[in-house]
Design a protein around this nucleic acid. Structure first.
Ligand SMILES: [Zn+2]
Ligand SMILES: [Zn+2]
Ligand SMILES: [Zn+2]
Ligand SMILES: [Zn+2]
Lengths: 141, 141
DNA sequence: TATAACCTTAGAGTAAGGTCTAAGGTCAAT
DNA sequence: ATTGACCTTAGACCTTACTCTAAGGTTATA
């Protein structure tokens, strides 16, 4: 049985974060001392580590909640349920990458156009380009 | 002289957003009617469009504030001042892209490992991988 | 027994960039 | 004169994922 700070040390998450996750239904302690101290058993620890791993990969807390629902009752869920969540996350990641690549290319073009030197910015081609405004939004979402 | 809703229509930003930008020093109306209505002149409109363009590219409001400082007094700023902001943004974008590519590759590996079918998730390799926990955090920031 | 180091809770604050509401004043057209 | 569309403000609320504080109770060690 681990206390919260021990679980924090073990998982690399803070005690604050663990309490926050508990409030959001992700991780909780199966037992409490008489005084109310949280005590985490092995299953609790494995669940916390599952959450940590999913966070590392980049899943949102909401995604993780869904993955945990599957985890506690695998017989009632299919591989497809799992891939749906994973694919949805991948789609989000891919969309975000595209958006950022669009920014990247614009920024690179701007940088290539400007001397970057100590000259006064009165003729700066970056400022001119911003003034001209020929850039499209990178499609948020 | 444009009223706020006219400037909103012209720039594609909402009147709410324009007021919010004003509170943050990005865009304001040079004139007000007796009743307090904002009236934007040509220079105000150009400034608003500059802001919109910079937003489209992906600059933060803080970045834009700096770019606007340069814009109103180009003689006191150099091309290097401009490229510093631009390069800094590009560095951020590149870092974020790397992080997302790491997620992308992990998610793809997970998807490739799972059949994604209607079988029960008791043997799901994605769930197993999350349980094993061999993933590193994608280095936020 | 005293001291440090731990634990508890509710709730506030942070970042970034808006978005919306309430309560009321103004303006153009009918 | 009345409708309806527009404008004003301060300030609350939203998202996501924490992070911290206050005020107080507990536990282990010296
Ligand atoms: Zn130059
Ligand atoms: Zn330049
Ligand atoms: Zn399968
Ligand atoms: Zn599977």
């Amino acid at each position: 049985m681990l206390k919260i700070s021990e679980l924090a040390a073990k998982t690399g998450m803070s005690a604050h974060t663990l309490r926050f996750y508990e409030k959001n239904g992700l991780v909780s302690a199966s037992d409490r001392s008489e005084a109310g101290y949280r005590y985490y058993n092995d299953a609790d620890v494995r669940r916390a580590e599952f959450v940590k791993t999913a966070r590392n990969i980049g899943f949102s807390l909401e995604d993780i909640g869904q993955l945990l629902s599957i985890r506690v009752d695998k017989k009632s869920h299919s591989c497809q349920d799992v891939t749906d969540i994973t694919r949805h996350k991948l789609d989000e990641v891919n969309a975000k990458i595209s958006e950022l690549q669009s920014m990247q290319s614009t920024l690179q073009i701007l940088l290539d156009s400007c001397c970057g030197g100590p000259e006064k910015a009165t003729q700066c081609s970056i400022m001119d380009a911003l003034e001209e405004g020929e850039f499209r939004a990178a499609e948020e979402n």
